[in-house]
Design a protein around this nucleic acid. Structure first.
Lengths: 209, 209
DNA sequence: GTCTATACGAAGATAGAC
DNA sequence: GTCTATCTTCGTATAGAC
């Protein structure tokens, strides 16, 4: 992922944004405007360089897009993995799932233009680009499946829920927040609590009865 | 909405597909390929006419897209409204919500290229096109809000859930199925039951305790 | 590492014949 | 209602100077 700590915002840099700088800008534009309307000329302009110069760093537009997509998944994957592994060994299922949900939403809504760009444009890019991003995606999906399978074996989840379908439902629901999330109406943190409330009460075995 | 009962599939029509025919084709292509990659030339070719001829029926590409988007919402709106109003007056909250969820998913996954095209491309079209589709969307959203508010007043939903947020979560989750739904892995009907199971147990007041 | 200049294709759109 | 022909703009991409 690009190191963007020193990137300028309103003032166009006169020199050497570099590969990572271009990538940061591309991710932000893809997140804001989608895939189709973001041309290399737009990316170049936002980076303060000329369109042709981009080809010093990348071989094609697709190469940029693939890089953005891959980083986007890696960020959310790392975030989720660390949030879960930071918990004590004897942590309950509900707390684990709440941490994973919160980590996913945090990466998507607060942390990373790369992750939000991925969710926003994945359905818009050429098939070849999607294919290139698939292995990285699969790894993240497997992380969720492993987590939920462990919880199910523990007896913490209803035994009849299909893990794959549950993962698709949950991730799909979380990613959909990108279309309407407004930080002025409440934090991503608060939102993740609501999602956990709704999903967990449908997923967890009832303690009473 | 276009009358497509007699539309040919593999054989290119030699004449007069008409405005509705063009619209049907456009909806199908938008659903399959997204907004950016579907050109007027592609639509024309699939319709068996030349690109220039489209301008006899429509003033611009945007005009086609707006028409597709509007019909897409109208179809799912009608479907949901009828499914709910067909129920007896004293029907319980759970049955009502299950019917509404099933109707939404049916329109999206089984019934209409227009509805699936809407969900697929709304995030890809120019702002002006989104704005044109907004009133129709608002009406459908209001339908859901009215339904759920009534149920909440009845005491059927937890009193602390925010209706607007709940609607965004639910519709967002349902629409996300478009990205991965595979009829060979189970029907839309079965899928709607799973969604109802998960959401209702988080939404409905617990009967026990 | 970035520039200028340019090749090439594809897009939306229009005009007038049939 | 549809065709042919064409205009104009904008996209990705390349070549060679600095």
């Amino acid at each position: 992922m690009a190191e963007s700590a020193t990137r300028r915002v309103s003032e166009a840099p006169r020199t050497a944004v570099g590969r990572d700088g271009v990538l940061d800008i591309a991710a932000r534009l893809f997140r804001e405007q989608g895939y189709g309307t973001v041309s290399l000329r737009k990316i170049a302009e936002a980076a303060g360089i000329k369109a042709g110069s981009i080809y010093y760093h990348f071989g094609s537009k697709d190469e940029i897009v693939v890089a953005v997509l891959d980083v986007g998944i890696q960020v959310v994957h790392d975030n989720m993995q660390q949030a879960v592994s930071a918990l004590p060994k004897d942590t309950g299922a509900e707390t684990i799932l709440r941490a994973a949900i919160a980590a996913h939403l945090r990466a998507l809504l607060d942390l990373s233009d790369y992750t939000s760009a991925n969710v926003r444009i994945f359905g818009q890019v050429p098939q070849s680009v999607r294919d290139a991003n698939l292995p990285t995606r699969r790894a993240y999906e497997a992380e969720w499946d492993t987590l939920m399978s462990r919880l199910q074996e523990r007896g913490a989840l209803k035994p009849d829920v299909d893990i794959r379908r549950l993962r698709l439902m949950l991730i799909g629901a979380l990613n959909a927040t990108l279309d309407w999330f407004d930080p002025e109406r409440g934090s991503a943190e608060a939102l993740s609590r609501t999602y956990a409330d709704v999903f967990l009460n449908g997923i967890l075995e009832r303690q009473d009865t």
